[in-house]
């Protein structure tokens, strides 16, 4: 019987957080919009911090539809990228610090469809993506976004992505 002593919790957390920040911080557009990610285990929640520059309709005011689309697409890509590296990070095959130097190629968007359910209010927004299918070449992802109430979505999206070839 082999029994391995569990790793200290802070070692596990630091490894995962380093990998996640490598994935997120490297993308200038996400930083520009104010998008960050909360992590609980392997579950990610994308957070869009409200700022005046993301307004689309200054009369309401409401978040620009293009910002909402960008937020949902970013949540989908990070979710896919995160799923791609998770096993490698956990098994020790991927070094989180090396990821900061050089990220593996990320999935590319083939198409993305956004439903605008209600206008985005001038406050923070949240999104969670679910990978419904991820094959060798293609992935299908669904994203939901909300503000004050998790059950009152202000936008949802579905998109298809081309996965990077594994032997690269």
């Amino acid at each position: 019987m082999s029994w391995k002593k569990p790793e200290p919790v802070q070692v596990v957390k630091q490894r995962r957080d380093t990998a996640l920040s490598a994935l997120v911080e490297s993308v200038p557009y996400m930083k520009f919009l104010g998008i960050s990610f909360d992590r609980r285990g392997d579950e990610l929640t994308a957070v869009l911090r409200y700022s005046e520059k993301i307004i689309g309709n200054p009369m309401l005011p409401a978040i620009h539809g293009g910002v909402t689309a960008s937020f949902l697409e970013s949540a989908a890509i990070v979710e896919l990228g995160w799923a791609m590296i998770w096993d490698g990070i956990e098994s020790g095959r991927l070094d989180p610090d090396a990821l900061e130097q050089r990220l593996p190629p990320l999935p590319k968007t083939i198409d993305f469809t956004v439903d605008y359910l209600r206008s985005g209010l001038p406050r923070d927004a949240y999104a969670r993506a679910r990978v419904n299918r991820s094959g060798r070449r293609y992935a299908s992802v669904q994203v939901e976004a909300w503000q004050d109430n998790r059950d009152r979505l202000f936008a949802q999206a579905t998109g298809h992505f081309l996965m990077p070839s594994r032997d690269e």
């Binding site: 490297s26 200038p28 293009g66 960008s70 697409e73 968007t109 993305f112």
Partner: peptide
């Protein structure tokens, strides 16, 4: 959107 290539994020094109 892709720092390796300098390609604009799809979301910006979408906006």
């Amino acid at each position: 959107g892709d720092p390796e290539t300098g390609v604009i994020h799809g979301g910006a094109v979408s906006a």
